[in-house]
Amino acid sequence: MEKFNANIAEILEVDKVEMDDELSSFECWDSLTILSIIALSGENYNVTLSAAEVNNAKTVGGLKELIKSKMK
């Protein structure tokens, strides 16, 4: 998951992200961004996420943990 932070930062349209950044606090946070995260986890980590799961992850760190927990 080396590139996770860089990939998430790109999707969230910022230069860098911190683990405790709240997902909903980003200016570009919307349904399309959630779809981008679902696509990222599917393509890069072979993990299928639902929109509800992404929302429940709350923070960047929470999202990382969620994907890790679902990786085989």
Binding site: L32, T33, L35, S36, A39, E43
Partner: peptide, 8 residues
């Protein structure tokens, strides 16, 4: 069909 925003 794959729902994916343009940037991804």
């Amino acid at each position: 069909m794959k729902m994916v925003p343009l940037k991804m």
